[in-house]
Amino acid sequence: MAEASWVICKFCDSVYQRAPLARREIARCSQCGAELYSARRASIDAMLALTIASAFAFVVANLFPIALLEAQGRSNEANLWQAIVDSLDSGAAPIGALAAMTVFFFPLAQICLFAYVLSALRMHHIPPGFRLVMHSLRQMHPWAMVEVFMLGVLVAVVKLKDVASVTPLIGTWGFAALTLLLTLLNSCDLNELWDRADRIKAAGA
């Protein structure tokens, strides 16, 4: 089928024939300049490794407190979940819900769903609900905001500096690692997974 070797620019609808790229090359649309596809496609193994590492970082980031605050002989520390619960109990519950979705549930779901599809595809098997999982991963992507939360931690620490003594704790490092790993994982092209599933189906038929 000829269509398989074509690529359509998502931004201006131009059609191109896929051409092989050298390492680190990026194919760009000649009309609008958007990236069409690139040579740096991560393998299933690399994506699975990133997923497992993200899972560890997620546990560390959420189990341990983010920062310790000391003022007038009293101290207070909090992790993400406490922050979410406190916001839900405050007068602005919607922001607690927003933080819960974007920093906790969506990243967690991304990690679980990636682990589910990647481990199955690696064993040459298309898991049940593959299409649903792939659509969820695509739609969740813009709403997972661990990297923004990480920047928020930095801003909060600096804001508190002149009021009290603040010490970033293990949770902050967990979030730093999770930011890096999830950014790498989310920059991977989901087409790699669709293509792999197509090949498995073709081999099975």
Binding site: N76, A78, D86, S87, T102, M145, V148, L151, G152, A156
Partner: peptide, 20 residues
């Protein structure tokens, strides 16, 4: 787009940390 959520997260963090 999503980077603007920064201030919301800062408020969430401050309200849980500053409780004395």
């Amino acid at each position: 787009g999503h980077w603007s959520m920064l201030d919301v997260f800062v408020v969430v963090l401050l309200l849980t940390l500053v409780q004395f």
